[in-house]
C-alpha cells in the first residue's frame, strides 16, 4: 500500500502545483475541520473527494479503500459511545438520555442521545481530518514534504533521517519481496509448519541483509564524498494554477463563513 500511495503522489495531476500551496491548503482545512460543526466537516470530506478524485485523478476506488481503512477502526470504537449501561433501578435518572433501550435484568442497555451526538461529532471530525491527511499523502511526494520541513527550519538531522528512512523502506521491501519469491519458488509456504520456518528464516535473513545494505550504503556515501551532511540541490519545476488557487481560497472562505454562521446562530 505504501508504494501505491507513493506512486500516486508522484503521478497525480496536481503534481505540478507548488507543494507548499497544497500543504498549506490541507493544513488550513485540517484546522477548520477540527473546529467546524459536523455539516461543515462533511462538506470538507466531499470537497476533498472532488480534489483528490477529479482534480488529482486518483482512482475513486483506491481513495475509498483508503478512507475505509480508518473508518473501520472508527466504526469499531463507536459502540462504546453509542451504547449506555445502567441498572433498571436507576432508570429514572437516565430516562431523558435514552433514545431506545431494553432491560437485561438487573441491567438496562440503551442507545444514548448524548452518545449519538458525541459519536456523530467524532465520526465526522475524524473522517474530515483523515481526508485532509490523505490529500497530503496522495498529492505531495514524501521528499517534497521533507524539503518543506527543511525550509521551515526543521533540524537537518531529522530531515536527513527521514530521507534515508524513506529510501530504506524501498530497499527493505525490495529485499523482502526477493526473499519471499525465492522461498515461494521452493515451496517455502506449503504448510503452516513450513511457512512458519520460512518466515523465521526470512526475518533472520532480512536483518542480516539490512545490516549489509546499510554497510554498503555507508561505503557508497563515503565514495561520493559524504561529509556528515546529506545536502542536495533541486530545481523548482512547479507552476501555480490560478484556477485551483481561486477555488481553494473561495471554497475555504465559504466554509469559514458557514462555520461562523453556525456558531453565531447557536
Amino acid at each position: 500500500m505504501h508504494h501505491q500511495i507513493d506512486a500516486l503522489a508522484h503521478t497525480n495531476q496536481l503534481r505540478s502545483l507548488p507543494p507548499e500551496h497544497k500543504l498549506g491548503f490541507a493544513a488550513a482545512l485540517f484546522v477548520l475541520g477540527y473546529l467546524a460543526p459536523a455539516f461543515v466537516q462533511l462538506l470538507i470530506v466531499l470537497w476533498l473527494f472532488i480534489w483528490v478524485v477529479r482534480y488529482a485523478q486518483i482512482p475513486a476506488k483506491i481513495y475509498l479503500e483508503l478512507l475505509l481503512l480508518p473508518t473501520s477502526f472508527l466504526l469499531l470504537s463507536l459502540p462504546t459511545l453509542l451504547v449506555g449501561i445502567s441498572t433498571v433501578a436507576t432508570f429514572k435518572n437516565i430516562e431523558p438520555d435514552v433514545v431506545w433501550g431494553m432491560a437485561v435484568k438487573p441491567l438496562y442497555l440503551y442507545l444514548s442521545r448524548q452518545g449519538i451526538e458525541q459519536a456523530t461529532a467524532v465520526f465526522t471530525r475524524s473522517i474530515a481530518l483523515t481526508s485532509c491527511l490523505y490529500f497530503i499523502l496522495l498529492t505531495i511526494p514524501t521528499f517534497e514534504l521533507i524539503r518543506i520541513l527543511q525550509r521551515l527550519g526543521c533540524p537537518p538531522l531529522i530531515t536527513e533521517l527521514m530521507g534515508l528512512m524513506y529510501r530504506f523502506i524501498f530497499i527493505l521491501t525490495g529485499t523482502v519481496g526477493e526473499l519471499l519469491t525465492a522461498q515461494q519458488s521452493r515451496m517455502g509456504y506449503g504448510t503452516w509448519r513450513i511457512g512458519m520456518r520460512s518466515l523465521s528464516l526470512l526475518i533472520g535473513q532480512l536483518l542480516q541483509r539490512t545490516l549489509n545494505t546499510y554497510h554498503q550504503l555507508s561505503l557508497g556515501l563515503a565514495a561520493r564524498g559524504y561529509n556528515g551532511d546529506l545536502r542536495v540541490w533541486h530545481s523548482r519545476r512547479y507552476k501555480p494554477d490560478w484556477r485551483y488557487a481561486t477555488e481553494a481560497i473561495a471554497g475555504y472562505l465559504c466554509l469559514l463563513l458557514l462555520t461562523g454562521w453556525h456558531y453565531w446562530r447557536t
Binding site: P141, L217, W233
Partner: peptide
C-alpha cells in the same frame, strides 16, 4: 542501489 542516496535523479 548502494550508491543512490537521494530521492530524485536531479537531487542524486
Amino acid at each position: 542501489e548502494e550508491q543512490l542516496v537521494a530521492a530524485t535523479v536531479e537531487e542524486d
